[in-house]
Amino acid sequence: MSDEPLISIPTAAEAALVRRLRARDETAMTEFYDRYSAALYGVIQRIVKAEDEAEDVLQEALVKIWHAIESYDPSKGRLFTWVVNISRNLAIDKIRSRQHRVSSRTQGLDDSLAAQRQAAPATFRPEHVGLQEITKQLVPEQRQVIDLLYFGGFTQSEAAEELNLPLGTVKTRARTALKVLAKLIR
């Protein structure tokens, strides 16, 4: 594991930030940006690919987080999980609506998968967590499944179809991969 602190792990600073956002302190937004933008942008960029669209989605996500912060419930999960999910959902909505425009969904999915496979090594910027460590822990098949599910916006059934694998295989790989990842911070 990297010895740098993970921002996904809640701290007192995070709790204070949540309080300030709830108090409608706009300066807290700047701090929020500095703390989370790289992680959120990384996820968004991996999903939507296009840089200008990623910027739009990041902006939408920040506005949504600002308006929805009241509904964030710390007992259900960490702030990081919550904000990443908001960003991820907006990004997935973006590619889904784009695929609608193109009207050929399969085409869109193929494109995004191919682009992802090629783009993956170039855009890796292990800044906080040892990504190499993750790569070492996950076998390529598990990586592929997790990438499709997490960055491709695929459901497990869609991923099974995309990879031409039985659904059970995809589920097993996803589950094993998630367990491996979970172990990394245990």
Binding site: I7, S8, A39, L58, T81, R125, E127, V129, F151, K183
Partner: peptide, 17 residues
């Protein structure tokens, strides 16, 4: 644990804008 694992995965892909 599952959520944290995915968070780590997300964070590992961070890109400075």
């Amino acid at each position: 644990a599952l959520l944290a694992g995915l968070d780590v995965y997300a964070e590992a892909h961070a890109i400075t804008p």
